[in-house]
Design a protein around this nucleic acid. Structure first.
Lengths: 114, 114
DNA sequence: TGAATATAACCGCATGAGCGGATATGGTAT
DNA sequence: ATACCATATCCGCTCATGCGGTTATATTCA
């Protein structure tokens, strides 16, 4: 466990928007446009946070045509695996994440995006 | 689980100095002067970080004469209890914390402080 | 009361980080 | 090649946070 990396790992979680994003991604891969729609945030804001999460090693991305899909990295560092477990147990308890997830269900979640 | 509070809980952990402090406190209550000596940091720096940890609900303090002792709060929020478990499992793996703890053993750790 | 000790809080400074609009970049269709 | 769509990145701005020296506060002792 490297301290600077650990601090950075925690720092990635110390923002509400990013926690909300992770709350959505816990159920599986999502496209930027879906995250934007659910969180009702401008594209640049979402994109910036996703970049932060990716740089911190929390998420991975893949491009499919013009769409970018993001997913949580399941086999990160030991610390991250521990924390991921904590997130899975605690994030769904949050009213904000509950509302976000319900809004996500309201969208047509097929794989070709909007 | 309240999002703003959670982000703040994580934020308290997103600094190397504060992780080091918690690494020391995992073994039990310590006085500010001990933490200062071990981390070899100025008093104002240590005091500031301890205040941050206290405000974030991670540590508690008690005064004993001119000395202030800090300890980790064991029965905090659900999230904090989960994270505390993660810290106990992961912090001692850090070389920095190992060195800090060894330096701490090198001091006379009676209860009347230096 | 004054002096000494421990430590909290203030202060100025530098850096980091969040925001959203604007612009750049990548992919696709015509 | 051009146009369109999705999204990454830049930009200016504001706020947060880290640093350590300095000052304020709390405690103890003579």
């Amino acid at each position: 466990m490297i301290m600077k990396t650990s601090a950075r790992t925690f720092k990635a979680l110390s923002d509400e928007t990013r926690l909300r994003i992770l709350g959505l991604l816990l159920d599986g891969e999502l496209c930027v446009c879906d995250i934007m729609a659910v969180l009702q945030l401008p594209q640049s804001t979402v994109s910036r946070h996703l970049a932060y999460l990716k740089n911190a090693g929390w998420v991975d991305d893949r491009r499919c045509g013009v769409w970018m899909y993001y997913s949580i990295i399941e086999n990160g560092s030991t610390l991250q695996r521990c924390l991921l477990k904590v997130l899975r147990e605690n994030l769904p308890q949050s009213a904000v994440v509950v509302a976000d997830r319900e809004r996500l269900q309201g969208f047509s979640t097929d794989n070709s995006c909007a």
